[in-house]
């Protein structure tokens, strides 16, 4: 069974009339996005970009059930809220935003792809981009993971994380996204990680915090040897799935966690998030503290 989700008081972010019809993933996303916008002190971002691996599962399951079991006319709400772009659409609706609005869905790399798109926009001249990721667990997923013998080391869960990516550093800036890559159908992850660090001029002792996605998949023999080469003490190597649980866009949680660590520990200047949740997909994100 999925673990219990820590939920904020959604009424502080979303009108009660809207809240009633919103599924878990929508509530999480809209509340999180609004909180992020207010923290950054930016009223209207130039763009809204969301990554989601599996989208609105609750409403998808509900509507699919209805389609296959009910004859005649069906209530449309769960269909309307089943599309992957519902989160980005609802966020734009809730703040009246007319900017670029995009949804990436590349299973475990959806967040990295969204982040890459946001970085492209900033390079193209946009000032502030709201970028986030969300996924929700449903009971049925646990059943699937057992039937497919996935032997998951952590519980399946839900999560949402949003960030304001800005072109200019401001008083509210607390970390800098130096680079990110999302690589599919990877055969040599070790080589890709080395190339990524080299491209960003990070020496083998230049990573102060490493966040990785568990040790239950085939890639890790290669990846482990490389990560050991970073000569980090154990406390600076964190399996972020042990904190977040498993969901396709959990690497967004890892970015949030790394940024928080940077705020509280000024010795952490460079953090690497290494996402190998699906063994053939490699996501790498490099964060630097704003002082670095």
């Amino acid at each position: 069974m999925p673990s219990t989700l820590a939920s904020p008081d959604y009424k502080g972010f979303i009108e009660a009339s809207l809240l009633r019809r919103m599924s878990k993933i929508l509530r999480m996303s809209v509340a999180c996005a609004k909180d992020c916008i207010s923290q950054a002190g930016i009223e209207q971002p130039d763009a809204i970009i969301v990554g989601t691996g599996l989208g609105c599962l609750l409403d998808t399951e509900k509507f699919l059930n209805n389609v296959l079991t009910i004859e005649g006319m069906l209530p449309p709400t769960s269909f309307i809220q089943s599309t992957h772009n519902t989160m980005a659409g609802q966020i734009s609706l809730s703040i009246g935003n007319h900017g670029y609005n995009m949804t990436h869905t590349q299973n475990s790399l959806s967040f990295e792809h969204a982040l890459l798109d946001a970085m492209l926009l900033v390079d193209e001249g946009e000032q502030n981009v709201l970028i986030g990721a969300a996924d929700e667990a449903i009971d049925f997923l646990s059943e699937v993971s057992i039937a497919l013998h996935l032997n998951l080391q952590q519980k399946l869960t839900s999560g949402a994380s949003f960030f304001m990516l800005s072109r200019e550093k401001s008083v509210t800036s607390f970390a800098c996204v130096k680079d990110t890559v999302a690589l599919g159908l990877v055969t040599n992850a070790e080589k890709e990680i080395s190339a990524f660090l080299q491209k960003n001029d990070i020496p083998s002792n230049g990573v102060d915090l490493l966040l990785f996605s568990g040790s239950s998949n085939g890639l890790n023999a290669q990846v482990n040897s490389l990560l050991e080469g970073l000569s980090l003490e154990k406390a600076r190597q964190v399996d972020y799935l042990s904190l977040s649980g498993i969901y396709p866009t959990a690497s967004a949680f890892a970015v949030h966690y790394a940024a928080d660590k940077m705020k509280s520990d000024r010795f952490i200047k460079t953090a690497l998030i290494c996402n190998t949740l699906i063994h053939s997909n490699l996501g790498l994100t490099l964060l630097q503290s704003v002082e670095a």
Partner: peptide, 8 residues
């Protein structure tokens, strides 16, 4: 490498 899916 770069394999991506959009859903809007």
């Amino acid at each position: 490498g770069y394999i991506n899916t959009l859903s809007t």
